[in-house]
Each structure stands twice: as C-alpha cells, then as structure tokens.
Computed example of a mutant assay.
Amino acid sequence: MSSSAPQRQFDLAELDTYMAAFLTGDAAGAVHRSLLSGGLSQMTVVYRTEERDADRTVVVRVPPEVGPLEPYEPVVEATLLEAMAELGVPVPRVVLVEADREHVGRAFYATDFISATMTAEADLSDPEEARTVAGAFLDLLVSVHEAPVDAMTVRGTLHDILGHIPAKTPLGVLDRWDAVLERTDIAVPAYHAFLSRWLRARCPDAAEQEVVVHGDFRLANVLWNDQPGSVAAMMDWEEAGLGDPMYDLAWLLMGSFADDDKVFGLATRREFIDGYAERTGRPVDPLRLLWWEVATGWSLLAMNGRATGLVAEGSYHDLRPMLYGYMNRRIAHTLLRKVTAHEDLLASAPLMS
C-alpha cells in the first residue's frame, strides 16, 4: 500500500446493497450475485436482476487492497475502456464507475455482461477454423496497437488517460519489477537474478512508435461470439499502458520457442510473427522480439514472486502464485533458451545481410 493511513475494509454486503440500488432503484431490491474465477488480481462479481419488464446482468470489477499488480486504478481502467470503445476496439461497455471508496471500501466499476465464450487453449479440429480464429486474434491485437494515442475522445486522449501509468518500455518494465522485488521479502532464484542482469545488459532503446499496450494479451482474455473468429470483447485491461507493441506480441508468444510451436492451439509461432508483420506493414525485429519475450517472462516470474511475498506477509490470500512453481520452471527454461538464441543471433549479426 502506498499509505500507512487506515483504510476502510471492503464489504461485500455493502456492494450487494449498492448494486441492488443501481439495478432496481431499491437498496433492498432482489439481485442475484455470483463470483467469477479469473486472474490473480481483481475480484469479478456478476449481479443479475429479474423483473417483470426486464432482466439485467452486469459485471463488477473490484481490485484488492494489496496485490502483486499495485497500484490498482479501477477508475483509470474504466476510463480507458470508454475511450477504446469510442475508437472502435471491442471492449465491454462501462455502465458504472464508483470512485469513492467509502461506499464499499474500494473504488470499482461495472460493465454490461457479455454472453459469449472464452477459452484459454483452442481445441479446433478444423484447420480452416483455427486459421480464422488466429487471424481474428491478430486483428484484435493490431486494432489495440493502432488506436491513436493522441486522438481526442469524450474521456480525453489515450495519452491523457495512461500517461502516468508505468510505461511498457524496456527500461520502464525493468525499473518497475526491480523496484517491486526490492521491497518484497523473498530470495529470488539465481536464474531470475541472471535474467535481470542480462536484460539490463541487452536492453534496447525505446521503440519509435508508442502504442497502447494491453499488458496481458492472451486467448483467455478474449470473449468470442458464436460465429468463428467473431470477437465480442477484449477483457482485463488493468495492466494496460503506453509503450512498445512488441510487449504484447512477446507476451502471447512467451511459452513458445521453435517456429513450429503451436500458440494457444491456434497457429504456429512463425505464423503469428509473420501475421503481425503483414497486418502492421512493419517487419518484426527478431532480436528485439526475443529480448521482449525474456523481459515479459521475467516480469511474470517477478509478479508471482511479489504475490508469494505478500502471501507470506499475510496481506494477500490468493495461493495460486505458490502453485505456479512447476509452470515457472518451464517458463524459466524457455527463457534461458531464448537468451541463448538472442546471443547467437547477436553474434551472427555482422554477417547478416
């Protein structure tokens, strides 16, 4: 937490009352509440009301008081969603923003519920359907990166909204997570310390192009309509910031290494890289991409380390980071292979045409 002043504790019963008043006009109105499982950070609550004339369902996002992705700024996240929607990016429609934490103990926002499907890993037996979904996934990524950061919306420019958020630039990412680990009372593994040193030694310059970076661009954060390849919405924007578009591409490729490795069960690593380059009209620098793949994987390890430290302190109670040890070992092994690939490519660079 950024302040030692006492804060009001979050009260789920008060949220029930607040949402009943919002949905029905009566704080004692009948609403149904259910919790959705999701990522490591925010609590996602679905509220539904059934009335004679209409029924309505909304999704409420409530950040934790303390967590691995601090500081949490739900009002900024909601404002970004409103701006991105105006710019044509498919996102949930914001219906409520409550900035005053005194109501329920936290600031929060709500969006309309979207009836759609989500999957973390596609299981598509039809190659043509897989290509369609992979293409739509890439189109979505490009639409995020091509959102004009200086275009005026009803909520201001994207630069106005995200300008104070830690930048998704090479130094911005390294400085953020180094600082996070410095205040976390855990001993990081030797390979993590090595990756930190290597990333600093090979840190590239900031990208010429500054874009909106989603920050967690993966298949599990996309909602799909029934028609194959039809995107309903991109979810979970809490890690968004301004920075290098390679961050998002690297994040989605994090677990892959060989050109023919399948990514999310949709397409090969090479197809994703080539597809992104084709859609943007800009070649993907293999050295820069490899650096970002190591950096994003390292940041995921740092995030889980921070979460584990908070659990040990007793201020955070999601145990999933402690259960990710086996996955972290696999990711760490892949990252070290990417370090070697980067060094090999760098060594051969003078001979490259």
Rank of each mutant, 00 (worst) to 15 (best):
G105P: 14
T280C: 12
A130N: 04
A30T: 14
G309Q: 04
A28H: 06
V213N: 12
R282T: 14
Q9H: 05
T340I: 09
L174P: 08
D216L: 03
H342G: 04
A78F: 11
L69A: 15
R306S: 02
W292C: 15
L174F: 09
P92H: 02
D26E: 09
E278C: 08
G297A: 06
R52H: 06
H159Y: 10
R52G: 09
W291E: 00
L87K: 01
A136L: 12
P170W: 03
R183I: 10
V46D: 03
H159Q: 13
P63R: 10
P148K: 04
G314H: 13
T280I: 09
A27E: 12
M118C: 10
L345V: 08
A21K: 05
L310N: 02
H103V: 13
R101N: 02
D260E: 08
D259Q: 09
H164I: 04
D226F: 07
A349H: 06
T153S: 10
S4G: 13
M84D: 04
A130K: 06
L289S: 15
E313N: 11
A110K: 05
A134P: 01
V180H: 11
E86V: 07
V76C: 14
V142Q: 10
Y191C: 05
F108W: 14
L266W: 00
E102Q: 03
G241S: 15
P90R: 00
L181G: 00
V173C: 15
T17E: 07
V45N: 01
P148N: 09
R52M: 04
E208G: 15
G156T: 00
L252W: 11
E77H: 01
L40R: 03
D274L: 12
R155N: 02
V76F: 10
L138T: 14
R183G: 07
R218A: 08
D55A: 03
R183S: 08
V45G: 02
L336F: 00
P127Q: 05
S115N: 11
R101L: 03
A233M: 07
L87Q: 05
N225Q: 12
L174Y: 07
R320V: 07
P6F: 05
P286V: 14
E77Y: 01
L301C: 14
D139A: 10
D248E: 08
T184H: 13
E51S: 06
A116E: 10
W198E: 10
A136E: 07
A151G: 06
E210Q: 15
R106P: 09
F194C: 00
E82P: 00
T169K: 11
F108S: 15
G156R: 01
V66R: 13
R61L: 01
S299Q: 14
D248L: 08
D205Q: 15
G229F: 07
E238Q: 00
V263M: 02
V213M: 13
D112P: 11
L290P: 01
T340Q: 10
R320H: 04
R218M: 04
S196N: 06
Y316V: 04
F137K: 13
I331H: 12
D274T: 11
A332C: 05
F22M: 00
A21F: 02
A78K: 15
M43S: 09
D11L: 00
Q9A: 12
L36S: 03
G229R: 13
P170H: 06
G156I: 00
D344M: 15
V62T: 05
R270I: 07
I331C: 10
N221D: 05
S348W: 03
Y247V: 02
A193F: 04
M352T: 07
N304M: 12
N328E: 01
